[in-house]
Nucleic acid binder design. Structure first.
Lengths: 336, 336
DNA sequence: CTGAAAGCGCTTACAG
DNA sequence: CTGAAAGCGCTTACAG
């Protein structure tokens, strides 16, 4: 029932080629024919079929975003940033949750898009391999892959982790534990390594059980904290790989009859707005999540234009935001 | 560089029609030719082009989700639910933020999808009109539209609002104010109406200034609360149209030197996990947001199959969850 | 500046 | 069961 380019051409008494030209503004067209065509377009309420155009131009004007699960604040921010940036360049955003899909389902999606953004994930190596083989330009969130020619936008995990741990150490904490994120996140994995590395450099020991997995969730963070509190050598500080886990940990500390930051200082990662309103407010390593989503889109679009350029890895600044949960907010304010 | 159906046909020494048939399993094919085709498919790493298939079949296997802004927990849950449900039926989900796009940009998107889900919004009436005119099956979040033949999935705002207000009244609150959501949300608008209606039925007055807009955000809720606290007849309770605003309001009450629930009882709407961890925990009207997303997808898919069925409106249950912020959690527990 | 025609990569009657 | 051919709705050399 929708009008096609043929209907428009007929009404405007021109060829479909001309209709196409005035609509795309690529070639010279008489003002008069242009007017006739536009009149027909209006009258018939014509909208070109993106699908047909896609077939003809071998391009979809779609970008696909793959992420483990969208049901988090982090995902919401990535999607929001990516969608606005994509839209600004005329692209639509396909949102795809990796969780719950088998390999076959996943592999059906890239064909729908000109470019792909994937949460960096050692977990789905075979998916990345297939993606590389398929030739779809891909940017990773969390790392880059020289071997697969995939660009990446990665937060400065080193800077953030080091700042957090040094801050805790500077304020006298010595038994600093780590609540880690899930295996599928390269960011989470990198933060564990940086935690270990930095602890060693600071001359602090990492006793058995000081690294607990909290799966990036509030509940997981709480459980991880409970395990830490059950340790014989109870930690006096915790660095969590994201804010949700840090908040869960705070709550667990309270339920255990201890208090934050007196008994256990806590620092999270992300800089979620919600942390600001906890009691005490959550100290955190801020990363501009929405910007990371935007940057990822810019990177794929750039790669589309520069297929042969060397792999790029964009490092995004992180920043320690000292609030109440690390027990040093007053001093910090003086220092600023 | 990607193999096409022609490459496969050539290698398997059959026609492209046969390749198509074995891939879609629609017609009878000899086991032997099937094997040859599959071998070629594997060898060439062939994946049919969704775009070409789309053109030929006049279908995209894509659903589009329009929402004001994705940067909220609510949006994350809607997307997550909608995407899983869509994927389960072989559809991909296009995520589109209405905010920041002009009419022309918006209207380019429906052509990419077989069906559309839109956050109910009086604000973009002309968009809905155009959608109806275009003939794309559409389901609305928040209401339905008989006149435009659009189905809807709507939370039971009446049940939730009435339960919240009656609860507050039953516990002796008489000066109950309302923090409303933005104009673009039909849910927000309906909640205002139900607030007024229910207050009247309960014999409670709604003084000038007792309805303040908080734009569905934490900050907006805080500001709305400040305005309420500045009123000569200060409210002793607040019913907010969502949890983010309720949390912002809680924080504003604290900053004003008053306490929740003693001075001001607060009830939100949504049932976000975060509310559970506030101090005090937020009493709220729960609605199954993720399920609403799923249901919306089921509804469009159903409409695709039943173009001529009468308009359907799915009512989704809501439920008052009594926690600390309304000042009645102890009694309530006894009642259960 | 404008038109006729080929082509994008599939699906699906229509024959056989 | 299988193939030749038309068609889906566009874009874009190629002529004129």
């Amino acid at each position: 029932v929708r009008a096609t380019i043929y209907d428009v051409a007929e009404r405007a008494r021109v060829s479909i080629a001309t209709v196409s030209r005035v609509l795309n503004g690529r070639a010279k067209v008489t003002d008069e024919t242009r007017a006739r065509v536009m009149e027909a377009v209006e009258a018939l309420n014509y909208r070109p079929s993106p699908v047909a155009r896609g077939l003809a131009m071998r391009t979809t004007s779609v970008l696909a975003l793959f992420h483990q699960n969208f049901q988090t604040n982090y995902a919401a921010q990535i999607i929001s940033g990516a969608e606005s940036e994509a839209a600004a360049s005329g692209y639509a955003l396909l949102a795809i949750q990796i969780e719950g899909k088998d390999w076959g389902e996943l592999m059906r999606m890239p064909g729908r898009a000109d470019g792909v953004i994937v949460t960096g994930s050692p977990d789905n190596e075979s998916f990345l391999q297939a993606l590389a083989l398929g030739g779809t330009p891909t940017v990773l969130l969390g790392h880059s892959r020289q071997d697969l020619k995939m660009d990446g936008v990665v937060p400065d995990n080193r800077q953030g982790t080091v700042a957090a741990l040094e801050h805790l150490a500077a304020h006298g904490r010595t038994r600093i534990a780590h609540i880690a994120g899930p295996e599928w996140s390269t960011n989470a994995i990198e933060r564990v390594q940086l935690y270990q590395e930095t602890m060693a450099r600071l001359g602090l020991t990492v006793p058995e059980g000081y690294i607990q997995n909290g799966e990036f969730s509030f509940v997981g963070g709480g459980k991880a904290m409970q395990r830490l509190l059950a340790l014989s050598e109870r930690p006096d500080a915790v660095f969590a790989a994201n804010d949700m886990m840090a908040m869960g940990a705070m709550q667990a500390v309270g339920e255990h009859g201890l208090s934050v930051p007196e008994d256990v200082a806590i620092i999270g990662f992300d800089g979620l707005e919600a942390g600001e309103y906890m009691t005490p407010p959550l100290t955190t390593v801020f990363q501009p999540i929405e910007d990371i989503g935007r940057e990822a889109v810019r990177l794929v679009l750039w790669r589309l234009e520069n297929p042969d350029a060397p792999v790029r890895e964009e490092l995004v600044r992180t920043e320690l935001i000292v609030r109440g949960s690390c027990g040093a907010s007053a001093e910090h304010k003086d220092m600023e």
